[in-house]
Simulated assay, not measured.
Amino acid sequence: MDDAETAGNDASAGIYARESEYLGRYVQIGVAGGRLLSLSFPESADPGADDDHELLDRIFAYLEGKRDGFRDVAVALAAATADHHILTAVREIPYGEQASVKQVARMADLDPEDGDDLQRVRQALDDNPTPLVVPDHRVRDGPSAAPPVIEQRLRSVEGL
């Protein structure tokens, strides 16, 4: 996304993970060059993962109810150009609000009445490498890259 954005003060590359009782899974992030590469919710953490990262601290505060849109987190999206626009549009959905797949298509300058464009939005959501930071759980009628139980917990945190 924007070069001025940061993935936290810790710009070191690595995998970081911490277990969440609320989610019943780990929250695992991959970071390189100060940018978030991946965010997942595995049942067990990568064996080499460290648990100390500023972004994990923010995610856990969010899970405890602190409002955070994560818009300042730099995300390294390697998606195709149209998918990049879609995921960037999803980042604009405010905390605690929802959008439809058609609204996301419109926000990404796609045709909300074109079935192929709507499928492209759904596919981009499903392939999202950083759910939560790119908040696909806020798209009420689209898939999330997070497991369904995690998607519901994230929606619950935001009162959706």
Rank of each mutant, 00 (worst) to 15 (best):
A17Y: 07
L23A: 03
A78Y: 11
E43N: 11
R91S: 10
A108L: 13
R153A: 15
Q123I: 05
D109C: 08
G65V: 11
G14C: 09
S12M: 05
P94A: 14
D57F: 00
A76I: 01
G34H: 06
S156K: 13
S38M: 03
G24V: 04
D109M: 13
R91P: 07
D51Y: 00
D50T: 14
D52R: 06
V27F: 00
D127E: 15
Q98M: 02
D3K: 12
R120L: 15
D83R: 12
S44L: 12
G33S: 11
Q103K: 12
Q123V: 10
S20I: 03
R18M: 03
G159F: 01
A61C: 02
G48K: 10
Q123S: 10
P148I: 04
G142S: 04
S100E: 11
D72Q: 12
R138Q: 09
D68H: 12
L56G: 08
Q98E: 14
A82C: 04
I150H: 09
Q119D: 14
G115F: 05
D68M: 06
A105M: 13
E21W: 01
T81E: 15
A45D: 04
G8H: 03
A61Y: 03
I86A: 00
A78T: 15
E92V: 03
P135S: 10
A99N: 02
D116C: 05
